[in-house]
C-alpha cells in the first residue's frame, strides 16, 4: 500500500511540474499567437482595400448573416476618413484535401476588389496550393456584382470568368465558391 502511494506521489509530482511548465509557456506564446493573427489580417485587409484607412470587425453584421452563410467566419468593415467604403469577409470552403480559407474584399458597390487565400495547407503541394499564387488571385480583382462568376478551363473570355488551375479544379472551385458566397452575403446585407 505504502509503495503504491509513493508511486502515485512521484507520478503526481511529474505531472504537476509538466503542467506548470506548460502553463508558463502558454502564457508567453498565447498573446504572440493572437497578436500575429490580428496583425496578418490587418495587413491583408490593407492590401485588398488600399483606399480604406481603417478596418474593424463587425460582429453585428456577422450575426445577421451567419445562419444563412455558415461558411463565413468573420466580417470586417472598411472605412475611408470615417465613411464606410467597403466590406471584407473571411470565408472557409472545402477544397481537395481540406478547408480553404479566403479573405474577400468588396467595395461599397459590391465589386470584388481583391482576394487573398489565407490558408490552403491541406491542398496538394505544387498543385492545389497554387490558389495562393498571385496570378490566380489577381483574376478576382474588379469583378462587378452583376457579372456572373464562373470557373472555366482555359483563358477567361469575359468579366467574371476565372481560369481554373490545371489539374487542381477542385481547389480552384473552392476559392470561387468562397467568393460567390461572399457576394451573396453582401447582397443579403444590402437587401438587394
Amino acid at each position: 500500500m505504502k509503495r503504491i502511494l509513493r508511486l502515485g506521489a512521484v507520478l503526481m509530482v511529474v505531472c504537476a511540474v509538466a503542467a506548470i511548465a506548460l502553463a508558463y509557456t502558454n502564457r508567453l506564446t498565447e498573446p504572440l499567437i493572437r497578436g500575429r493573427v490580428a496583425e496578418e489580417t490587418q495587413q491583408a485587409l490593407r492590401e485588398l482595400l488600399p483606399d480604406a484607412d481603417q478596418f474593424a470587425e463587425a460582429p453585428e453584421l456577422f450575426s445577421r448573416i451567419t445562419a444563412q452563410f455558415p461558411e463565413i467566419q468573420k466580417v470586417y468593415v472598411a472605412r475611408t476618413k470615417g465613411k464606410v467604403s467597403g466590406v471584407a469577409f473571411l470565408v472557409t470552403t472545402t477544397g481537395y484535401g481540406g478547408p480553404v480559407t479566403t479573405l474577400v474584399g468588396l467595395d461599397e458597390g459590391g465589386t470584388v476588389r481583391g482576394i487573398k487565400v489565407v490558408s490552403a495547407a491541406k491542398e496538394t503541394p505544387g498543385l492545389g496550393t497554387q490558389v495562393m499564387e498571385d496570378w490566380f488571385q489577381r483574376q478576382f480583382e474588379n469583378i462587378p456584382l452583376d457579372a456572373q462568376l464562373s470557373l472555366v478551363k482555359g483563358p477567361p473570355k469575359r468579366a467574371g470568368e476565372v481560369q481554373a488551375i490545371t489539374s487542381a479544379t477542385i481547389s480552384s472551385r473552392a476559392v470561387v465558391e468562397g467568393v460567390r458566397t461572399c457576394r451573396e452575403a453582401f447582397r443579403a446585407l444590402m437587401g438587394r
Binding site: A18, A19, L22, A23, N26
Partner: peptide, 8 residues
C-alpha cells in the same frame, strides 16, 4: 481554458 494540455 487549458486546451494546451491536450497532447499530454
Amino acid at each position: 481554458g487549458i486546451e494546451y494540455l491536450r497532447t499530454v
